[in-house]
């Protein structure tokens, strides 16, 4: 029994440690700048979870993170280090916003699916290049997908400043989408929208897919041991490509949902790094559906708490960014828990 508990314990410690360190680092920063850490954390907790509206705000903030976390997880589990969800998020958001006003006279039941599918397809296509480069030429996908993020940001920024700039509106934004393209709100007056349910459902679906389908099985085995996979007849390079594109599809969809659900248009600076936070979420959640959901809610809570905390205290919102960054940094660190694993049985 004691032996059986050990792996579970060390796994739990491995997940909790990055958070614990982030909390400690945040406390040091707060204390050093004359704030009272415990008080600030207490305020953050109540701002994130104190009451229906605050919870709704947290879940709204978690919505894009669920899908960017999922996009990262889909790639990571098959051994692909895709860091390009951020770019897909921008492109998907832009495409959904453009379709959302260009096809504004379509009925919602048609318009919303078409806009979201369009967003997903563009996201998927965006990563075909790095996928092919990795599968055929062995080009490191980390650098190519990272570079594509910047290209996507610049490209969409050019589009909203030029060809797609809304007439007469403020700089760097498309026209607002048609009302019929907006995802319905779940708990008015809060901003929680249907996108949360869609995202949650997709993560749950991923959980089932990864456990119960042939494709889910193959992608996992390829991620664990590509040489073994090849020897048992699983096509490794096409799995790489497929999972890369799937990751892009999800990243694009995430942007589309964000545009139709919350922003209702595309603006420059559309994402404050959701794609990158998604990487931390997938790593912390160990690519599991439940892990992604929990990690997305924690990150969502951090940002929703940060957004309103400023109103009630003099603590700058950036404490949240510092903690998010710290979680990312330590999410991939090895702390020596369960080092004994891997020893000869």
């Amino acid at each position: 029994m004691g032996v059986a508990m050990l792996p579970a314990l060390s796994r739990a410690a491995g997940v909790a440690a990055p958070f614990a360190l982030a909390v400690v680092i945040g406390a040091i920063v707060l204390a050093a700048t004359g704030h009272e850490p415990l008080g600030v954390y207490g305020l953050m907790a109540s701002e994130a979870f104190g009451g229906e509206r605050r919870i709704a705000a947290t879940l709204t903030a978690a919505t894009p993170l669920l899908l960017t976390g999922l996009a990262a997880a889909v790639a990571f589990r098959s051994g692909i280090f895709n860091v390009g969800a951020e770019g897909c998020f921008y492109l998907g958001g832009m495409v959904a916003a453009v379709l959302g006003f260009a096809l504004g006279d379509w009925p919602s039941v048609l318009l919303i699916p078409v806009a979201l599918v369009g967003a997903a397809i563009v996201g998927g296509l965006w990563l075909v290049g790095p996928g092919v480069l990795r599968a055929r030429l062995g080009v490191d996908e980390v650098v190519t997908t990272l570079m594509l993020n910047f290209i996507a940001v610049d490209l969409t920024s050019w589009l909203v400043n030029g060809p797609l700039l809304a007439r007469g509106s403020a700089n760097s934004a498309t026209a607002p989408i048609a009302v019929g393209a907006e995802l319905p709100r779940l708990l008015p007056p809060t901003t929680l929208h249907l996108g949360f349910v869609i995202s949650l459902a997709l993560v749950a679906l991923y959980g089932l897919w990864s456990r119960f389908t042939v494709a889910g099985f193959r992608s996992r085995i390829v991620g664990l041991n590509a040489r073994f996979s090849r020897a048992v007849g699983i096509h490794v390079s096409s799995t790489f490509l497929r999972m890369m594109v799937l990751s892009g599809l999800i990243g694009g969809l995430a942007g589309g949902i964000h545009a139709l659900g919350l922003v209702h248009r595309f603006v420059a600076g559309f994402s404050p790094g959701y794609g990158f936070t998604g990487i931390a979420i997938a790593l912390l959640g160990r690519n599991s559906a439940l892990g992604i959901i929990l990690a997305a809610i924690v990150f969502g809570a951090l940002s929703s708490a940060g957004a309103t905390m400023q109103l009630f205290s003099d603590v700058p919102i950036e404490i949240v960014e510092i903690m998010q960054g710290a979680v990312m940094i330590f999410a991939v660190a090895k702390f020596g828990f369960g080092q004994a694993r891997g020893a000869r049985a």
Binding site: T33, V83, F276, E318, E321, G325, A326, F330, V332
Partner: peptide, 23 residues
């Protein structure tokens, strides 16, 4: 701590940007 350099680098970008604005 054998952490992945890409993630750690991105994490530092996020955290230091936050820290700078915080300061």
């Amino acid at each position: 701590l054998q952490a992945n350099e890409i993630i750690v680098g991105l994490g530092f970008s996020v955290a230091v940007a936050g820290l700078v604005r915080f300061v």
